[in-house]
Design a binder for these strands. Structure first.
Lengths: 188, 188
DNA sequence: ATTGCCTATGCAACTCGTTGCATAGCAGGA
DNA sequence: TCCTGCTATGCAACGAGTTGCATAGGCAAT
């Protein structure tokens, strides 16, 4: 239900076409709200019909025309209303946790490489966050409101990745200990 | 795609009816995989058709009959196969992060009470986790494989809540600082 | 007595999100 | 030249997930 609002935020930060939005959702915004180009195009059309965004056709040479959207006053108001509504509890989907509990009925060692893969991707993401922090916020003493808020979200991402890495190490140690206790992989 | 597998894990831990599963998903399992009774009933029927679970009608006095499901060998095999497949990257939906960035185009102070509400619910969840840890794992030196794996998942939940609490405090401090800088709530 | 809640299962309709495919021009490399 | 890939938008079909409602008996409280 909040894809509209994520799009509004992105358009307020910077107007853009559906295609450009889709790429932003693959990068920055997508760290905390994912969406495919299909969803974005569909929602943009609905938002245009509702008057939340305004579109302007832009001809380009060497590539197809694009429709550049920007948030309207009505969109701004809708975002403001949403901001003041209590958030519904987020639905959790933690597949790895299910797998870890499932490993009790299989061989715990079978999960090790999977967890290691997760560990690597989280380590890579943390590195990208830290690099992005250096690049986008070189002077932490001179941030405006928007940057302060972007930075506090980024700090959340960084702390989340650090916590996750520590936990995955804990998981790996546990799996290896269990595998050493039962090297046959018996499922009793 | 993993609801089937979460149900299999739950049924392997303890056979039960659709209704009982729905309640487990409201409690323990639901901490990392949510599902409504509608979803569960539908998926259980499909799983029964696929031979992943077997059902047994159980008459009860004073209440309606129930169908008690348990995981079959085929279900166990399916779970085992799934365990060995790489997990697809989880889609992230962090509504509060969107709201925080949205606050840059509104009044940051308007978010304070919302963030405080989140803080309270996370603090309550952490307390429940810690209480459940005391109750279910009184002797950490004497855990079997299943309990070891349940406990490492629980540790993840505990660390996640601790990290989240610290971050929400950071968010609150940031919002209050910004509100103090611009007490009029101007949106420029 | 009536009201409301709990167990237990289910249908129907809907929205949300994903996947595969199509179009269409341009650029760059084998 | 053909193939691949990028920009840019979109349709159609499907699957996942939500919401509202229905049934139906028993229980406890008012």
């Amino acid at each position: 239900m909040a894809l509209e609002h994520a799009i509004l935020v992105s358009l307020l930060e910077q107007p853009g076409s559906g295609y450009e939005l889709a790429r932003r959702f693959d990068r920055s915004i997508g760290r905390f709200w994912t969406a495919t180009h299909q969803q974005i195009y569909r929602v943009l059309r609905r938002m245009e019909a509702d008057g939340w965004v305004a579109a302007q056709e832009v001809a380009q040479d060497g590539r197809p025309d694009k429709k550049v959207y920007s948030a309207s006053e009505a969109g701004r108001d809708a975002l403001s209303d949403w901001l003041r509504e209590p958030v519904e509890p987020e639905t959790v989907r933690h597949e790895l946790a299910v797998k870890i509990r499932a490993a009790a009925f299989d061989d715990p060692a079978a999960l090790v490489s999977e967890v290691e893969r997760h560990r690597e991707s989280h380590a890579a993401l943390l590195a990208r966050y830290l690099h992005g922090e250096q690049r986008d916020f070189p002077d932490l003493g001179a941030l405006d409101t928007r940057q302060e808020l972007q930075h506090v979200v980024l700090r959340g991402g960084i702390e989340f990745e650090r916590m996750t890495l520590a936990w995955l190490d804990d998981v790996l140690a546990t799996l290896r200990r269990l595998a050493a206790d039962r090297p046959d992989g018996s499922t009793t």
